[in-house]
Design a protein around this nucleic acid. Structure first.
Lengths: 335, 335
DNA sequence: ACTAAATATGAAAACGGTTACATTTTAAAA
DNA sequence: TTTTAAAATGTAACCGTTTTCATATTTAGT
């Protein structure tokens, strides 16, 4: 494999000149520039970027911690990250953490071991192992999708509380009073935020919050189905179910169908995220759309700015949401 | 940031000894080993892995080219890759190519520029730009999911033709004679393989192949929906539709529902991949299950073996498939 | 106790670039 | 033409490891 010295020899110049020709062509005369370029071709030179990264101390790699790439919403976010990263000359190192703390730490360590310049978390969960904190006591990190309260790190998030409130108000406006909620995992701040929004709407409408209408989930189809089965066996069923994500809602709808409950005439169902499938299930799902790709783009832009020292204090970017009303929600049935 | 020299100074030994202590502890006396370990702690040493990779010439990175991470099937494959890579001490650099040739080349180039040791393609599409071929004329690459014919590179694939044949036979056994097919993108060898399997089954059952029952798609929900609309407007409708993946099938089912065609009583629908959603749509989708995670695991194992020179000539691993009969396929309606 | 072999350690080169600094060449100004 | 500044190029140090080879130390054998 040809290296920069081979090029220099071939062109009859020094390695410094070759390096300059490649990095700052304007600093070298047109004549030698041509010689060098010809030599590059002649010997088939490919710069060893590992050497460059080592020397420069900048890897231009970003680690992204994602709970699971199989989640359709995350897949969209990642897609946006890839795009922005490519534009800025960065590569994404994707880590599928499966919520596992060891895996998270393993990948987060790539920053302290100079394998990556920064870190994006798709799940709020700091601080990491103290061993990976750098000089100034902070990791070059941004949190996406979930707000983190301590204000130390940049955040790009959705106003989950407001969005959940908007959805709940939509259900209330259709006449629903007994509105169940299928939650996300306990460990996720999202769960709490969306629950808060739900409670806000209830309070504003003078509907007393009923803890027995809360069901556990974990953002998977199966969990939604399980909760749906439980709900359909209830003596005093809710007339609407607000699910903390679309997968959950789709799972629950299957349970309702099996129990011969019509959606939305017997029971309304609402989701959150607006994944592609939601428009294609039967009935199409009412949900909250989030600008997923934009999330990703913003997160890497923020991180790169942070790495370049362009950010003074941790900003908090709140992305807009949109209530998408489809056919899975309808007016409450008379009791 | 402490480097190996700081550790050496602190421990009162040479850098060579520190390196040995960390890499091959058995080659250093217990006494100095303890001294070094203490020094590592004392100065908070974290090896600069970029330097290690540069020096060793092994990056322990693998580039994975995926057409789109938003495809649920690919997401499962990637998940399996991550797992196997982590076990083998490799990291995955995920590239979302969106089928774009430039993006593919850009990421493939990471191998020739020493940023990654090898490459996995989730879509068969070689050779690349000649500029990135190495000495022996080959890229350290394995193809997953799609068989490639030239036999130069290891392949892990499914017998798509046999699987498509099995599904078509299932439909024929239910009495279907007019079976439409919604294809994948032209560019994908998968499309052709599955089409071949479909034709095989037709031939074996003495059903004449009817080109007008072939519809274009691209593996997305929307394309499936579009084809579904076209089919429902047909004067002489097929009694069954075999879709080349599940997303397509789910899209088509939505179109049929809108056209008041009952699945499966009016028209049967079959998919391919068995993504998680398929069990949860209405009706649950008959499909072909592929061991997606295992695909991913096998692909990286193969690639790592290839990198270690453990592979003589390119193997071709064919993974098993399974016909999953759910409720979207039923006996053919009398005409 | 003496020598040979085995083990432990250190000094320094190497990996492939970038870059500060020194030097030479070219262009511009006097 | 001479002087001076600017532009082009070269020399060599440097980034943080690993690794070869030489040297020092320990262990074993007689």
């Amino acid at each position: 494999m040809a290296n920069i010295r081979d090029v220099a020899d071939n062109a009859g110049v020094s390695v410094a000149t070759v390096s300059r020709t490649l990095q700052q062509p304007e600093r070298v005369s047109p004549k030698t520039r041509n010689k060098v370029m010809a030599a590059v071709q002649a010997v088939g030179y490919k710069p060893n970027l590992m050497a460059v990264k080592f020397r420069s101390g900048k890897t231009h790699n970003l680690v992204v911690l994602v709970p699971t790439v199989a989640n359709v919403f995350f897949a969209r976010v990642i897609s946006g990250m890839q795009e922005a990263a490519a534009e800025l000359g960065y590569s994404i190192l994707l880590a599928n953490t499966l919520g596992n703390n060891d895996i998270e730490n393993h990948y987060a360590k790539m920053v302290s071991t100079s394998q990556a310049d920064g870190l994006i978390q798709l799940r709020a969960h700091n601080p990491f192992d103290a061993s990976m904190i750098n000089d100034n006591g902070l990791l070059p990190m941004v949190n996406a999708c979930e707000v983190i309260e301590d204000g130390q790190y940049p955040v790009v998030s959705l106003d989950n509380r407001a969005a959940a409130k908007a959805m709940t108000e939509h259900l209330i406006s259709l006449g629903h009073k007994r509105i169940a909620m299928i939650k996300g995992p306990h460990s996720s701040p999202l769960t709490q935020e969306r629950l808060n929004g739900y409670k806000d709407a209830l309070r504003d409408a003078n509907i007393t919050f009923d803890e027995s209408l809360l069901f556990d989930g974990d953002f998977t189809l199966q969990a939604g189905y399980n909760a749906g089965v439980t709900i359909s066996e209830l003596a005093n069923k809710p007339s609407a179910v607000f699910c903390e994500n679309d997968e959950t809602a789709i799972g629950a709808m299957k349970a309702f169908k099996q129990a011969d409950l019509q959606v939305p005439s017997d029971i309304s169902v609402a989701g959150f995220d607006d994944i592609a499938f939601s428009a294609f299930v039967d009935p199409p799902l009412t949900t909250i759309a989030q600008p997923a790709e934009e999330f990703g783009r913003t997160a890497v832009t923020l991180l790169v700015d942070l790495l370049n020292g362009k950010i003074k204090k941790a900003p908090k970017v709140i992305m807009p949401f949109e209530l998408i009303v489809r056919e899975s929600t309808g007016v409450a049935a008379p009791r």
